[in-house]
């Protein structure tokens, strides 16, 4: 069978149905010229993607952040959260509904090192996981994690931007709601792309509360916006951990 350049382009872009893709994959083994054409298409796709990939890791210009957040462009004086205990991040949830989006919005005001260890820290490119959260994201596998782990990893996947991402939830405490988020591996660190509170536990039937931490809707949306293909299965997750979550 002859394949047009359009067929091969769609194949390389992952746009063919499973049957057509399988037919091309089988033909590649038998036809060196075809394999060469596919390799050239693949290499072009890789090179174009790679040429712009470094932009993601660049520091975010303050003016863009300020516009998007609706804060003044001038540096904001650091706010001291001295009135609160930061011993565990979940303790801060006693604040109630102020977290989630609001927390992301205010994260710029948190100065690293002003409080005891928190689970994330703001830097020039946004929020970076550290402490127990960073450890869980790097070490824990969804299949084998302890049922009572303070941080639970949800699904892991490859993002359309090419990096590994993992969703996570914090165990709720008596006084606090579930908190969940999405972190992606960039430049050797876990970047938090979304953090939000789930619906108040009081609103959910008892059995759902017991079943484990629900993923907040904004985090689900953030996952849907980024996921490429399906979530990793247990083997793929383990393999990704072995590679240090670098692709």
């Amino acid at each position: 069978m002859k394949y047009s350049d359009d067929d091969l382009m769609a194949y390389v872009d992952g746009e063919l149905d499973a049957e057509s893709a399988a037919a091309i994959a089988a033909a590649l083994a038998l036809d060196a010229a075809l394999a060469d054409r596919v390799a050239r298409q693949r290499e072009l796709r890789r090179a174009v993607h790679a040429a712009f990939e470094p932009v993601l890791a660049e520091p975010m210009p303050q003016r863009l952040l300020a516009s998007a957040r609706g804060t003044p462009a001038a540096p904001v004086r650091a706010r001291r959260w001295s009135g609160f205990e930061w011993g565990a991040m979940t303790a801060s949830l006693a604040l109630g509904a102020v977290l989630g989006a609001v927390f992301l919005h205010q994260a710029q005001d948190l100065v690293p090192g002003t409080g005891p260890a928190a689970d994330w820290v703001a830097d020039e490119t946004g929020l970076r996981a550290r402490g127990a959260l960073a450890l869980a994201l790097t070490q824990q596998l969804a299949a084998t994690q302890a049922p009572d782990a303070p941080v639970k990893v949800g699904s892991s996947f490859v993002a359309t931007t090419g990096e590994y991402c993992r969703s996570f939830t914090f165990a709720p405490t008596a006084a606090t709601a579930h908190l969940g988020g999405l972190a992606c591996r960039r430049s050797g660190a876990w970047r938090l792309l979304a953090v939000a509170e789930a619906d108040r536990p009081g609103g959910a039937p008892e059995q759902y509360r017991q079943a484990g931490a629900p993923v907040p809707a904004p985090v689900l949306r953030a996952i849907e916006d980024r996921i490429q293909g399906n979530a990793l299965d247990a083997d793929a997750e383990r393999a990704a951990r072995q590679r240090g979550w670098e692709r």
């Binding site: 993601l56 660049e58 863009l64 952040l65 998007a68 989630g100 979304a194």
Partner: peptide
């Protein structure tokens, strides 16, 4: 700022790196 607007802005912030990359490609 309403909660909806805060949520919208937070998602916008998280998408800024991709918007910059898209802009750079254009």
């Amino acid at each position: 700022m309403t909660p909806a607007e805060q949520q919208f802005r937070a998602e916008l912030v998280s998408l800024l790196p991709r918007l910059r990359r898209f802009g750079r490609a254009l």
